[in-house]
Design a protein around this nucleic acid. Sequence first.
DNA 1: TTGAAAGCGATACCAC
DNA 2: GTGGTATCGCTTTCAA
Lengths: 304, 304
Amino acid sequence: MLSAKTVALIKDAAASLGYTPNQVARALSTGRHGNIALIVPDVTNPFFAPLIRAVEARADAAGLCIFLGDSDEDSAREERLIGKLSPQVDGLILASSRMSDEEIRMPRGRGPIVLINRDVEGMDRVLVDSAPAAAAAVRHLHALGHRRIVYVGGPTSSWSNQCRRAAVLLAGREMAMEVIEIPARRPSYEGGMAAAPAVRSTHATAAIAFDDLVAQGLMAGMAEMGVGVPGDISIVGCDDVLATRTYPQLTTIASRPDAAGRMAMEILLDRLAAGPSPGVAHMLDTELMIRATTAAAPNDKGRG
Amino acid sequence: MLSAKTVALIKDAAASLGYTPNQVARALSTGRHGNIALIVPDVTNPFFAPLIRAVEARADAAGLCIFLGDSDEDSAREERLIGKLSPQVDGLILASSRMSDEEIRMPRGRGPIVLINRDVEGMDRVLVDSAPAAAAAVRHLHALGHRRIVYVGGPTSSWSNQCRRAAVLLAGREMAMEVIEIPARRPSYEGGMAAAPAVRSTHATAAIAFDDLVAQGLMAGMAEMGVGVPGDISIVGCDDVLATRTYPQLTTIASRPDAAGRMAMEILLDRLAAGPSPGVAHMLDTELMIRATTAAAPNDKGRG
DNA sequence: TTGAAAGCGATACCAC
DNA sequence: GTGGTATCGCTTTCAA
């Protein structure tokens, strides 16, 4: 190499001339772009905000820039975004992908891909395992005397939804409870609100919602119909992203989206540095947070 | 040119060979990257989510990809992000920049820049003018009998904060009301919650918060102290991003972040196509949404 | 060790 | 009109 002082001299000269290496030219030459892409189904869903933030922070610390894609809950749009972004990035993070397993597996460029909340064998993925806590929620409701409950589902292509749905159904069967399924067209406040009448008409005494947003919409819908929470119906959310900010405070399943984002980025950085891997599933725990929207079931004379 | 059939033949061949023009090589050659960057102070602030979504949607429709930067409310970090991103993009959108006017004016690359909620003469900018609605909020409180109110401020480097603060102060003076200022360290739920005791100790009968997040934190803080809203104290928020989701529903100033994002992107696309401009300010209206957190001032014997 | 030259992949210019 | 070629800025390889 050169002597230390020469290096310093050069650096000084470079700085005084305002020289900056051209990232684009470098990328063309080396194939390494210094960028990564993060794709989510809906930026406005509060679950993704902390996740995005965590990914951004970790990427920035590693000197990488991030492209953000919003698929708008649509697999075709997601596919298109990937196509447009992957040639300009070194790696991809797909959060709650709405694509099919086959579409996800399809090779794209040659950069590593990390999945969040999507369980595709052979790929790197971080999974927020809400099943145990969802089962705990069912038992919690059973202990409060509820025997007929509703699961207000999310998108069918959502792994989280399948995971929670299965756990609720199984736990319900084990506790000899009746579990009714009602879909929320979209995992949003509006979706939850729209589902409220259908939920009410089942005469169930409790509802477990796909996520906090749906739960919050459900609460608003119930309030509109004059149905008291938790007096007339108990409600459980999922994600704990706005639970302390509802009134009454929402009983929910905490799922730490920031941790999921950070971990995904960590794995991606590792793949970027150490090369490909056989594809590992990283599990993240959840916890049932019992707050104020769950209470003893109303007695039978109040029902249908 | 060539005959139509030849063109079709070529396209077929290209498609069957799986050919895609290399965006990076093109960028190196032409200097046009097909990317734009959006920088916000905090992705998790619900004001920015619809804004980001709108920018993303419009950019995507125009065939552009977007880089997202989170400055974490820090001007130095913002500066760094701009430095890293601007060489790879055709244009920049700076939302609620925390940098000084001089820093913002400093030339960066040669792409157009559009500011959101930052009033720098000679630059393109879209401004959500909350001043009239803030004044209306003060008059609304006056009509309800409030004579001593608090303004819970946001970041000092925020143009929106300066705008709202000035409007509240002026309107207060005009109505012969006492206006006390209390800062929220950060425009967040936590910041609002932390400010609650200080607000309470002023014995003011109403508070206008910098934004909905601060207002929500304030409501939670009041609840914790056993202070009723709006019974003991009235609260007004700003932005209308979660107003219908608080309990009681928040009286607030609606500021349409999605419209701001869409308009900023529209202006940027125009500059990209039509070249530089002298720098125009585009104003966006706001509206006072009167909901349930404002009520008549408690009578005097309750104070002091 | 150091310097010179050949890509990377597309564009744009300029002779033919 | 159209084909050939220099160029964008950096990396990497290969001679000297």
